[in-house]
Amino acid sequence: MVEQAPAWAAPLALGLLLALCVAAATFDAALAAGRGLAGALRVPWQEAARLVVQQRRTTVANDPLLWRTGGVSLLVVAALMVAVVPWGDWTLLDSAVGVVWFNAMDVLLWAAVWITGWGANSAWPLVGAHRFLAQALSYELLLMFALISPALGAGSLRLADVQAEQAGLWFVVTMPVAFVVFCVCVLAFSLWGPFAAPIGADLGGGVLAESSGVDRLLVLLGRYALLVAGAAFAVPLFLGGGEGPLLPAVLWSVVKTVLVLGLLVACRRRFALLRPERFAELAWVVGIPLVLLQILVVSLLVLGRS
């Protein structure tokens, strides 16, 4: 019942991705200053204008090829993630292994962030890049298991099937741990909130310490795009996709995405930085057993049903 969208929907989806990025940035600005939405409306645009006209910095003996590639690829990865998301009854790319697709795209970020930090040939960005790898080693297995849970519940790696399986009972009810872990992992690969250590203030900006102008804009936009992609992915995985009363399914998908996105964005103000060397132990000693238990519960439910 989920159909392949026509080709002209691709720019539409990209536009939706960018619009949600702007919405997320506006919401974040509104939370930051505490001066309400009206004061925040201009902020993302001012910020973008500022970075567009700003000079791009170069450093001594940098590696422009890797540096620039890394900066762009965050946005590219986010777009590729969104491509397999079913929006209501439509999807751009109906992959039979959409869940694995998401995971593979997420791993591309390991390389993307690392080469961004490496390319500047400076100590702070490189430390930030290594910090991201440490963080990635901690969250990646959690993310894999969190992704497996809904796939196991639906008996399929295709997102359309996962979404269809939830008619009546959303997976967030039966697999709350997996949902929370998934959201944490989205924050982690988006370098957002408690997981912003690779670009943290304690490293003077980390990976971004030497970037300015368009280079910085692309990375910052890429972060928002990754948050949007993660939020959009949570909807078919855990929140029943386009299911909902009155509104058409596409709109329900968008509304749910916006809600998850708002939740993720708000996390930034709530928590202090979770430093990667501390997060590692937390993720492996507490997190992984928890998601494994969740998978056990899901397996038992699936067995009991059949």
Binding site: T58, T59, V60, S122, A123, W124, G204
Partner: peptide
């Protein structure tokens, strides 16, 4: 101002004092 600046590769160590490799 922009026209008067030299790129760092030409001028040697022009990075920030606190965060550079010079």
């Amino acid at each position: 101002d922009a026209a008067g600046r030299t790129p760092p590769d030409a001028g040697g160590d022009t990075g920030a004092a606190e965060m550079d490799h010079g």
